[in-house]
Nucleic acid binder design. Sequence first.
DNA 1: TCGAGCATGTAACCCGTTACATGATTAC
DNA 2: GTAATCATGTAACGGGTTACATGCTCGA
Lengths: 180, 180
Amino acid sequence: MTEKVGEGLKGQDVILGLLMEKARTGYEIKQEFESLFPDFFVATFGTIYPTLNKMEKEKYITKEVIHQEGKPSKNVYAITEKGKEVFYDYLKSPLEQKMIRFDFFMRLYFNQYITSEELVKWIDQEIEQTKITLQRLEETIQRSDQWNEGQLFCWELGIKINRIFLESLKEAREKFSHSS
Amino acid sequence: MTEKVGEGLKGQDVILGLLMEKARTGYEIKQEFESLFPDFFVATFGTIYPTLNKMEKEKYITKEVIHQEGKPSKNVYAITEKGKEVFYDYLKSPLEQKMIRFDFFMRLYFNQYITSEELVKWIDQEIEQTKITLQRLEETIQRSDQWNEGQLFCWELGIKINRIFLESLKEAREKFSHSS
DNA sequence: TCGAGCATGTAACCCGTTACATGATTAC
DNA sequence: GTAATCATGTAACGGGTTACATGCTCGA
């Protein structure tokens, strides 16, 4: 059948995109991931640092070590011409399907195998998580008046969807806590 | 920092869950993934068949070969007691954060590096994709009157979100095709 | 005759996660 | 005193993807 879901959007593509704007440290990149893409790309240090090192070896980026007083030294990475090419190659590649693994929905689907107390506990956790995402998106949108139309579209839609999700979650909480 | 995003919801967990209901072939499992979870878990044969083989070796499932006339033989897998335990272990494990990689949003965020023709092309592709997902969800919801509350919640919410997504996508198409 | 549907499999590779490891400063 | 913030890194492992491989039937 040989079916492709996607060679996939990789952490590397997004990191290069962020470095297109300006030079950054791994730590800063992590923070940008959290504020910019809380809802459509999650990355941890375990992905970011190894990717940064790999890309430096392949000359996609250069490293400059900045010594700081009272704080650890930091590595500021800047994109090279070769790195820009790699980023443009990503943009030229075919659009990939979104890739989702939604544990909460999965457990809801299998709710017949658990108690409703557990289910309500998960709903509460999901509510908390959604509130955090929503807050991050709202803060990001206000962070600058320089966002372009495409970026605003991402966050406005993210906010819309998360609000509906939150609403439905609260309704579900009612429903399932009564049926226990 | 040692941050955990999630040991993750694995394909194995979902496959075991499906086998809790009834014995199935790999091919059927693939179809269930497409109709049941088009929006919250994507799996291909490249994941399903190796997982099935691995689980058979570990005695989580048993295989029965069914010979068919005019069609290839098929392997029907049934869950064992050990497999059920593994599935319950999954349900007992902490709820994981959803894991998303949304290529379309990523490209929209980086829209300054591309032409608006390309952007509109991607929007059109995303519109098509969303329509397919929506259709699958609507078909699934009508497939049976036996769905329980949790399952209905998943699909109703999925439909709600995809409708809003589709609407916004159409608006975006207007906006970006005029600005070109 | 060509594509779609039915049906399964494996080897190589790569990406990402987890766990481990370090260490200073600031605020409560 | 202890948690949070700043700041980076690596080794081992595992899950998943891609590419490759096979082959029959039915309808257009």
